[in-house]
């Protein structure tokens, strides 16, 4: 039987990523998430709290990991966030989706795009052409390569975090990661 080594982030954080926080922050937290996953919905508020607590010491990165066979709305929701990102409003859409996880059908996605003031003809075209589907797939495969097996999965400074996604556990893990540098 083959043992597996500690899982590391295989695709480093780079220009293609959606990033909040400064590049030089001592802590980089990468989340592989799915907008329809209820556990990601809970983790969304944990991440917000971590960002509040750590401020500029935290860089947060979100990558897509939609499990579309169990979450039928997850793929289009991810495409909507990417389409909003193309218009400079990724995080606004990301937050809105996690705050409205029960309403992620196409009709609502269009409504959210309108609420965020996006160029709707461009948004609708991007959605109907599935313009960002390939990018979302790249995110998912990059996650699979570092052993992401479900959502949410976090990496702290490039190492997969296998603990519980609650605030206390994550603060403790982050402290440990920073202390080990």
């Amino acid at each position: 039987m083959t043992r597996r080594a500690e899982a590391k982030l295989t695709v480093p954080v780079g220009e293609r990523d959606h990033i909040q926080g400064p590049t030089e922050a001592p802590v980089t937290l990468v989340e592989y998430g799915d907008y329809e996953c209820p556990y990601c919905g809970q983790a969304y508020f944990v991440v917000k709290e971590l960002q509040r607590l750590l401020g500029n010491r935290l860089r947060f990165v979100f990558r897509n990991f939609p499990l579309t066979t169990v979450h039928p709305y997850a793929q289009h929701a991810a495409e909507a966030a990417e389409a909003a990102g193309a218009q400079g409003k990724f995080w606004e859409m990301h937050d809105h989706l996690f705050e409205h996880q029960q309403e992620l059908d196409d009709k609502h996605l269009k409504k959210y795009a309108a609420q965020l003031g996006l160029d709707l003809s461009r948004f609708n075209r991007d959605m109907s052409e599935h313009r960002y589907a390939a990018r979302i797939r790249e995110d998912l495969l990059s996650g699979v390569r570092c052993g992401v097996n479900g959502t949410p999965t976090f990496c702290i400074n490039g190492v997969r975090y296998d603990g519980a996604p609650d605030l206390d556990s994550m603060v403790a893990a982050i402290k440990e990661a920073v202390a080990s540098v």
Binding site: M1, T2, R4, V144, R145, G147
Partner: peptide, 18 residues
């Protein structure tokens, strides 16, 4: 060519398979 046994409660993911 490869085998892996995961703890029963742990999803082994797919990186090893690939």
């Amino acid at each position: 060519r490869w085998s892996y046994v995961s703890p029963v409660g742990v999803n082994p993911g797919a990186d090893g398979i690939l």
